Amino acid sequence: MTKVVNYISEAFHELKTNVTWPIWADVQRLTIIVAVFSIVFALLTWGVDELFVKALEGFFNILK
């Protein structure tokens, strides 16, 4: 158990001393970019899905 506690303690020390954290404005800007990209990608995926649904419905209606 001592090894685990020591590992966690060293990991936190590493994060505090050796990691360069971005400034808050950069975090906000990048978060907005990721959110917008995620929404656009979700809408594109939904659009392609709807396109395939319509195409398959048309294909199976032809086979009837």
Rank of each mutant, 00 (worst) to 15 (best):
V4F: 01
L44T: 03
V53Y: 01
W46F: 11
K16P: 06
A35P: 06
V53D: 09
L30P: 01
V34P: 00
V36R: 15
N61D: 14
F41V: 04
N61H: 12
N61L: 12
I39E: 09
V19Q: 06
G47R: 05
F52Y: 12
V34M: 13
T17W: 03
V40K: 02
G58Q: 11
I33T: 15
L63P: 04
W21K: 06
H13K: 05
M1W: 03
E14A: 14
S9I: 06
A42R: 08
V5A: 09
V36F: 12
Y7S: 10
V34L: 15
L56V: 10
I23V: 13
V4A: 03
N6Y: 12
I32R: 13
D26G: 04
F12I: 06
I8D: 10
S38P: 07
L56Q: 12
F59I: 02
F12V: 05
Y7G: 00
A55H: 08
W21S: 02
N18T: 14
I62G: 04
V53K: 15
I32N: 08
W46A: 08
V48A: 02
I62V: 14
I8C: 06
M1A: 11
P22V: 00
K3Q: 11
A11L: 14
F37E: 15
V27G: 05
M1I: 11
T17I: 07
D26Q: 08
A11V: 03
Q28R: 07
K3T: 05
A42E: 14
K54F: 02
S38R: 07
T20L: 11
N18A: 12
L44D: 01
L43E: 12
V53L: 06
I8M: 05
I8L: 14
W24R: 09
T45M: 04
H13Q: 14
N6T: 14
N18F: 07
L63I: 10
N6R: 15
E14K: 14
P22Y: 03
V27R: 00
L63E: 05
V5L: 09
T45L: 04
V36H: 11
T45D: 06
K3I: 15
T2D: 14
Q28F: 06
E10W: 03
D26F: 00
L30I: 00
I8V: 15
W46I: 01
D49I: 03
A42F: 08
F41K: 07
K54M: 07
P22E: 06
L43C: 08
G58V: 04
H13P: 02
I33A: 11
Y7M: 01
L51H: 15
M1V: 09
F12M: 09
L51W: 13
